[in-house]
Design a protein around this nucleic acid. Structure first.
Length: 581
RNA sequence: GGUGCGUUAGCGAAGUUGGUUAUCGUGCCUCCCUGUCACGGAGGAGAUCACGGGUUCGAGUCCCGUACGCACCGCCA
């Protein structure tokens, strides 16, 4: 054994003990004939003190050397309140170098000097830093809680294949060429969706898995190509059962990691969320719902409004109370550019100050319309109202994005709050301009609402499903649905998606067949583990909570994956790389 | 697929209207220092200014392209 104690555990009461520690040299302070060394391991930092008679021992010790030290625990003359072990030091009597280290390319401390790309290239050094280390430890704590809670409720952890079958109708798959079946490919699972449903048919009843998922789509600050899903499925259950189970898991996690036990889980139908917040994942840590003022301007003397409405547009308005002195002309110009990202043509605004209006709409709108607007929105002095007139989906999402942006910038968000909400009754389908057909909004195994069964084929635009998301602080934390469990219903959905019998058999054959042998009603969710850890640890960067993350172009700066392979490897797989055009 | 921003010693940044030896902080090395904990003090080394092309008497600085990084839109059943 190189050590009998860790660098995080010694306290005042250990004074006088003879101990042996091992770890990394975090910092060396040489005061002449007395030398201090901060020794770091996973558990913390302990100061080693080498007095005059021992300072020769550490003459050649440099930062990040791995050393083993024996000594006696002593009390510091003045304590360091910043360290858990700040009251003690170890008066070193020996020092053995277990490993030397070159000068590191980044400073290894809570506050490093390096930017993210250097940290990713030397991720093993980054992991020595508390901010990253703590998130990995939190992740472990959360999965431990999840396993405990679910096992208590009779859920069974089952592992499903990583080498699986390409999923049509979804994200792009990562493919793995087969050696034994030339020209054929395995796909890495986008989620264990079909397997877990087959486990229900297999009578597994209550299943979960901490499951790796892979999606070959472009990345974002909250999206990695491979990620982990806490995947849950239960039989003989509906929304109430699964919501209850998920809420139980969330309550346990927040209780044990944050000491919070008053979580609320309100439910908002999708249509209402879009209407009020312009998002299917609204951040409810602040209010500021949008209002529909289309009716008010139907016969407006402002031609732009009137004509837009006549052409099918709606007008959404968003009020920020008391924000008039915080939003400058320059800010409105910036916001006008911002909404263009979301395809909105323009952003109009009015300020109401000293019982008078000003702003881009002030001259365009007659007094009576402005007063009507003031009355409908309940405007008071100091308020600002932002408006977008556009087709419904654009007006909603663009103004919703403004709500989110200004909520952040005006400091309306209470960062210590955790606001969950269930978004329910998602649309069954959405129209794909690319493919010129209706595609599943969730996935094709999602059950429709009972009252919308007759719209499955005849009225796809107004057909809603039993799919739901759980949102936390504006992040989509999980998605799930009640699944279809009878073949007739499933056939109708495939029909609505425009799939031929041939396509259905090729794409979903084994899966559909299973439903002919007795499928229980079932439903489930997949919880995005990284997003949960991000929120719990207060970061907005998913890379911070992944041990070895990829860059925005899905590249690993540390290992240089993906890489080229030897010709024999390609030959085994009968693969040939096309010369790029 | 698209938009925007960025790339200058190990790391992080500054670099003005194009002008001579590229600046600062930190890290690193050497020396001094017995109570530091972001120790302090003195000295030193360290840069093909991402790459390729162009404009110019002259380019870190202006233009074009490429690569890489970040964020966003599309995409993510």
């Amino acid at each position: 054994m190189n050590r009998d104690h860790t660098c995080g555990e010694l306290r005042k009461c250990d004074a006088g003990k003879h101990v042996r520690l091992a770890g990394w040299v975090a910092k060396r302070r040489n005061l002449g004939s007395i030398v201090f060394i901060d020794l770091r391991d996973r558990y913390g930092i302990t100061q080693l003190t080498f007095d005059e008679s021992h300072s020769e021992l550490v003459k050649d010790i440099r930062n990040e050397y791995v050393i083993e030290v024996e000594g006696t625990v002593g009390i510091k003359e003045t304590a360091n309140p910043k360290l858990e072990t700040g009251e003690i030091e170890v008066l070193a009597e020996s020092c053995k170098v277990l490993s030397t280290a070159k000068t590191t390319p980044m400073i290894i401390a809570d506050e490093t000097d390096a930017l993210e790309d250097i940290r990713l290239k030397y991720r093993y050094l980054d992991i020595r830093r508390n901010p990253i280390k703590e998130k990995l430890l939190l992740r472990d704590k959360v999965t431990t809680i999840v396993r405990k809670v679910l096992h208590e409720d009779d859920f069974v952890e089952v592992e499903t294949p990583i080498l699986s079958k390409s999923t049509p109708e979804g994200a792009r798959d990562y493919l793995v060429p087969s050696r034994l079946y030339k020209g054929k490919f395995y796909a890495l699972p986008q989620s264990p969706q079909q397997y877990k449903q087959l486990l229900m048919i297999g009578g597994m009843d209550r299943y979960f898995q901490i499951a790796r998922c892979f999606r070959d789509e472009d990345l974002r600050a909250d999206r990695q190509p491979e990620f982990t899903q806490i995947d849950i499925e239960m039989s003989f259950a509906d929304e109430e059962d699964i919501f209850c189970e998920v809420e139980k898991v969330m309550k346990a996690i927040f209780k044990e990691t944050k000491g919070i036990d008053n979580l609320q889980f309100p439910r908002i139908p999708y249509v209402e969320a879009m209407d009020l917040y312009g998002s299917d994942k609204p951040d409810l840590r602040f209010g500021n719902p949008m209002c529909d003022v289309t009716e008010l301007f139907k016969n407006s003397r402002f031609a732009v409004f009137k004509n837009s409405i006549a052409a099918g547009a709606i007008i959404k308005a968003l009020v920020f109370k008391g924000a008039s002195d915080k939003l400058s002309r320059k800010k409105f110009d910036e916001l006008t550019e911002f909404v263009k990202i979301y395809k909105a043509k323009a952003l109009a605004y009015l300020k109401y100050e000293n019982d008078a209006f000003s702003g881009s709409l002030n001259n365009a709108l007659p007094d009576e319309e402005k007063q009507a607007l003031r009355d409908q929105l309940g405007l008071e002095n100091g308020d600002v109202v932002l408006m977008i007139a556009d087709k419904k989906s654009v007006a909603q999402t663009a103004l919703g994005a403004v709500r989110k942006k200004l909520g952040e910038e005006l400091g309306l968000i209470n960062k210590s709050k955790y606001c969950f909400e269930w978004i329910t009754e998602f649309p069954m389908y959405e129209y794909s301009e690319e493919e010129n057909r209706w595609v599943s909004a969730h996935h094709p195994f999602t059950a429709p609402r009972d009252e919308d069964v007759d719209k499955l084929i005849s009225d796809q635009a107004n057909c809603y499903s039993r799919a739901y998301d759980l949102v936390l602080n504006g992040y989509e934390l999980l998605s799930g649905s009640v699944r279809i469990h009878n073949s007739e219903m499933q056939a109708k959905v495939f029909d609505a998606l425009g799939l031929t019998k041939e396509q259905i058999r090729n794409k979903f054959g084994f899966f559909i067949e299973a439903f002919d042998y007795g499928a229980p009603p079932h439903c489930g969710v997949g919880i995005g583990l990284e997003r949960l850890i991000m929120i719990l640890s207060g970061t907005d960067n998913i890379k911070d909570v992944v041990a070895f993350p990829k860059t925005a172009t899905a590249y690993c700066l540390m290992s240089d994956a993906p890489n080229t392979v030897d010709q024999d490897q390609l030959d085994f797989l009968s693969l040939e790389i096309k010369k790029s055009s």
